[in-house]
Design a protein around this nucleic acid. Structure first.
Lengths: 382, 382
DNA sequence: CTCGGGGATGAATCTAGTC
DNA sequence: GGACTAGATTCATCCCCGA
């Protein structure tokens, strides 16, 4: 197997149509949501044309009767028709179909992500291996705020699983090791990710009701795309839903294609992505070189959206202003580095505590970024 | 499906031979390590005789020893360079074999645990479902100190997965909810467990080298056995290795049976378990049900004179006031019923915990009637 | 304006015993 | 086996509203 780490190496093998270029050899419906069944929709795409597939298929929950909380309120469960299958065999056939088509559409050095729960992920994983995909990692999304087990009958189901696979045992794939390490406080990014479920402002509503029962948090897609794609890559999501994949892809400068059967979801997703703004070029650039390795605990704060990429930070006297990048590094006047390293370099000082040195504008009030760290710590403490 | 929470209830359905009793109807090789292939060894055990199976199967075929292809031909794991299909097919056949035998040996209300990594757990999970097992949870063992990914090519593989399954969708199973909640600082135990890998004093050594490549931490087995077995239960481990399952089972007052093909491991395990001391009776009992709340009929409280007939009870917001009747029923504006039923009916709710819903006036202080239940419990304790 | 309490809610395979 | 009833059961977060 092989690993390509830098944008440059990636560009050499890329066959995608960069936006703005004229060499439209491959005509991809980039930035569009294809209507109808995803297998049919994928058939319309050329072979070996996509860099990444991210799929959030139905989980086949097989729920029984009604469930109430101890206070008597009703649990709004996922009972939609799209999640119902007659048997494991039917679910397996469905899974084989869409995975096969995804495999055809992927470039040889592309990769696939699937998210699921214990209801379906073991079937998906086995079929994926049977089809020749090669598992690179299984990733555990540890939810900070899962729904409890109201009846006290099992362990609280507090996680979901993502599978990351290349197209084969010997296939090349892309992993932005440095970006992940930077994002994780200079420690290797682990296979368990602590991320809250999607709620609050991020949760899309229609007429006061959730627009989609299983909307995924953007932080999840953020990490997936940052880890395994480069700027300009084409990302395909066969179960587009409300378009979290598209929104995050657009923000990070990736191209996207969606498939979605339900017209209502397509409309919500279209409106959502239209409002999304791509991050500044400098904000997207990630730390790819070990030489400039920043020593930060800052990446998680960025990922959590507390200081989104593109945010400007500055020292107290406003001598320097820097831009936050996606992996938690800063860039300022050609120089870049961690919050500590860049502060040190700019001042010509022997050392610098970036948390105290850099400030941000909190609704008119100038605060050290350490304030955000505190907020973040409170939000993820476990 | 059903859940039994107390030791008393469990004893009603148990068919195991309690130690020290004479009713040895079932002759189990309890406290012994069976030599040879685990499928063969399990064949020597009676049907429906074991309460729990905990299995740590080999993660790859090299460690699996004797394997046969579906057509019966022998697979030499060390020298053969078989293709993907042969490899997975052989592992699947092996998995089906031992899981089928485990299923036969399990009591109808027994349960199965399997631990694995992304290399094998998806195959195991799918086969387990195919055989009729019913997944209850998948548990993530999050390692505090995993081995780093030295080459920086993937995410640090920082977890392993455990599957917990009952014998079928409608099958009963055992879950010590209170014990788990207590163990987790009075919060529901989640599906992600943070436990260090096995090392230090706990790691068994032979001639300075680790005695077994994949020795599991005792903390893992401790939690598994505490959660899903009762004292005296029979636990079977088909891949016994150095006997972590046996050691923890002995400590917790569970009976155990092991299967292990390697004589060297059997010797290590035997010595290890001999040194293990069972915990004191009271220590085990305390851990199992630290806050057992026996069921109390409201009528008994009335009968005891703690809330005499004629007492007025009301909900917190005083929307309804009901009168206690001599038989422990409540009456309110023509409607009547149990404390639960009437509360449910008045609110139009799907369910109601009357102990928390109804309040009474305790010398000017408004208290839920559950407070009286506690008083009652104390009074009948001795 | 802030602060605190109450209500709502999230991919959930969610009861046991008796007649 | 189905209907019925007694009884047991929740964590983190966000929004709204009132003080």
């Amino acid at each position: 197997m092989g690993v390509l780490e830098t944008t440059r190496m990636r560009a050499c093998t890329a066959t995608k149509v960069a936006p703005g270029t004229k060499r439209g050899a491959i005509d991809l419906p980039v930035g569009r949501i294809l209507a109808g069944d995803c297998v049919e929709a994928m058939r319309s795409l050329p072979t070996a044309s996509v860099d990444l597939v991210f799929a959030d298929p139905p989980y086949n929950l097989q729920l029984g009767g009604e469930l109430n909380r101890p206070d008597g309120s009703h649990v709004d469960a996922v009972t939609d028709a799209w999640d119902r299958f007659d048997s494991f065999a039917a679910y397996d056939a469905f899974t084989r179909d869409w995975l096969s088509e995804a495999r055809r559409v992927l470039k040889p050095d592309g990769a696939l992500w699937v998210i699921g729960s214990y209801h379906n992920i073991y079937r998906v994983g086995a079929i994926l291996q049977d089809l020749g995909f090669w598992l690179l990692n299984d990733i555990v999304w540890r939810k900070t705020n899962p729904m409890p087990n109201f009846r006290g009958t099992r362990f609280t189901n507090a996680h979901e699983t993502l599978l990351w696979a290349s197209t084969g045992e010997k296939a090349r794939y892309h992993f932005n090791y440095r970006a992940m390490k930077t994002l994780n406080d200079e420690l290797q990014m682990r296979s368990d990710w602590v991320i809250p479920i999607c709620g609050g402002q991020e949760r899309l509503k229609e007429n006061g009701h959730k627009a989609h029962p299983t909307q995924k948090p953007e932080a999840l897609l953020y990490r997936v795309l940052l880890a395994t794609t480069e700027k300009g890559d084409v990302v395909l999501d066969p179960f587009f839903g409300t378009g979290t994949t598209g929104a995050v892809a657009k923000r990070l400068g990736r191209q996207w294609i969606g498939c979605e059967r339900e017209a209502a979801y397509r409309e919500v997703a279209t409106r959502r992505i239209a409002k999304e703004l791509p991050l500044d070029e400098s904000a997207i650039a990630t730390m790819n070189s070990p030489r400039t390795a920043p020593k930060v605990a800052f990446g998680a704060v960025v990922e959590a959206g507390l200081l989104p990429p593109g945010t400007h930070v500055f020292d107290k006297k406003r001598r320097w202003t820097a831009t936050v990048r996606a992996d938690g590094s800063l860039v300022c006047a050609g120089a870049s580095g961690s919050i500590h390293g860049l502060g040190k370099e700019l001042q010509g000082a022997p050392s610098c505590n970036g948390w105290a040195f850099w400030h941000y504008d909190a609704a008119g009030e100038i605060k050290p970024i350490d304030a955000v760290r505190q907020t973040y710590l409170l939000s993820v403490e476990d």
